[in-house]
Design a protein around this nucleic acid. Structure first.
Lengths: 259, 259
DNA sequence: TTTTCATTGCGTAAAAATTACGGAATAATA
DNA sequence: TATTATTCCGTAATTTTTACGCAATGAAAA
């Protein structure tokens, strides 16, 4: 990350590189220690956090822009991502004089009220799900930290980013039935208790573990492996993996994976 | 509709009234004679059709803009509408020299390639559902007709508007289980066969009419009226209406109205 | 070595929902 | 009066969901 170069590109040339008035924000979900987490950035010299985001280059596809932004923060290609809502309150990106001063100071750029970055911005939002352990969080030049935060204990967020996370979670809960959420959040090999915990965490409610397992196995989308996972002073659970072909076929045909 | 005034407002002053690079397109569903229909506009002097759409005023909320656009085409306030996808292929709004010439001629405005209307535009899309009979279709100054078209027999559409309709229909099919679709598409009073036909049409598959009726009645969301609808040489079906309070309560609580 | 504890695997059974389908009631027409 | 076709109001078999039990297991404690 070349901070000086990025700063100039955004602050001074951004108005001709990027589509004005439009941005992209990403809600990146990960799952770790039975907690749904979301990747956030902490602004330099501020106790304010934000979602990973950025702008759309003039000749860039929306999805390509979202993927690029994701790659920059996570180090990963080909993350599963879905557009879920476009936020556009006229005042959503307004900054107080203090905020403007702060932005000016961390970018070493004088800002007047006509600067393209201070204009009204409509944000096209995507959610992404990926394996927690594969992510290598990378702050951008405006931030000092890029970290996973628990969905139930979010820090103070800028603009409408908290609303974005809430809307993304609602969408995730609906999509869990016909999008490859579990498939992308879990390791390639997982146990029944692990996928059970994941669904309980996402749906925010208790599911009977015996009925859940029975139903999931009856769908025929996962395969039991000849491997068990040692978990200490208890019976070692079997490992499973998704039958990729059957799973993708089911998704394509729109079969509702109701649990 | 004052054509000259609207033309000047859009073509000459639009760049300062509206947010550039952003538009709104609406997929308006109606239901008539057991057919799902969508409201379309036919361009002047052209056999090309488009969805109702428009731009967002600088201080206008996205949803407010969508409502305004809907009102202008349908004459109705408070139509049920939901944002469903933002389309933004870089080339989606490109026009051939022929198309530019055509636009110039129907607006009596010379257009050079720097005109704000010819720039790349990202479109925020909404679907709406409303009672077919209440709509008073109104073409805008670029169009000579505003008409309902059957979802299964669409005319030639500009840009990615066919994709928009397909995506809207997919969303409608998912939303039918937890959004007031039937409630907004049917008359206040309807019969069991009418709502059964509506669901079959939207879902695109046969539903057993005896099981459908039984299930719908078991949800407790509709009330049988002391009225029947004479349909000629057959037994007159009873009329029903939604129990508004129970229905809204069910929607709020997220009860899935699975049929 | 035996016992304890807590998790996982593999069920059983009752309740609820879904699915398939029949025939009486009805109303205009022949 | 008989015919036709639609609606109403079912019954019953099948499937799914829900609730829950207990044996197998494995590390740690006694």
């Amino acid at each position: 990350m070349n901070e000086e170069k990025d700063t100039i590109e955004l602050m001074e040339n951004g108005h001709s590189i990027y589509l004005p008035h439009l941005s992209i924000d990403c809600v990146i979900f990960g799952y770790h220690e039975q907690q749904l987490k979301v990747l956030l950035l902490k602004w330099k010299n501020r106790n304010r956090w934000s979602l990973p985001g950025g702008f759309i280059k003039n000749e860039e596809n929306l999805r390509t822009a979202a993927s690029r932004i994701l790659k920059e923060r996570t180090g990963l290609d080909d993350i599963f991502l879905q557009q879920f809502h476009t936020f556009g309150e006229p005042t959503r990106s307004e900054r107080s004089p203090e905020d403007v001063e702060h932005l000016s100071s961390i970018t070493n750029t004088p800002l007047d009220m006509e600067h393209w970055l201070l204009k009204r911005t409509v944000s096209i939002c995507y959610y992404a799900v990926t394996e927690f352990s594969k992510v290598d969080p990378q702050p951008d030049f405006l931030s000092e930290q890029c970290e996973w935060q628990e969905i139930d204990r979010l820090p103070e967020l800028i603009f409408d980013h908290r609303d974005m996370i809430e809307e993304a979670l609602k969408t995730l809960r609906l999509h869990i039935y016909h999008q490859p959420i579990g498939y992308n959040l879990l390791s390639e090999k997982f146990t029944l208790p692990e996928i059970h915990d994941l669904y309980e965490t996402i749906l925010g409610k208790a599911l009977d573990r015996r009925n859940f397992a029975k139903k999931l196995l009856s769908l025929g989308l996962i395969k039991k492996l000849n491997e068990r996972k040692s978990i200490g002073a208890h019976r070692s659970p079997y490992l499973y993996k998704f039958d990729k072909r059957k799973y993708e076929k089911a998704l394509k045909s729109g079969i509702v994976l109701v649990i």
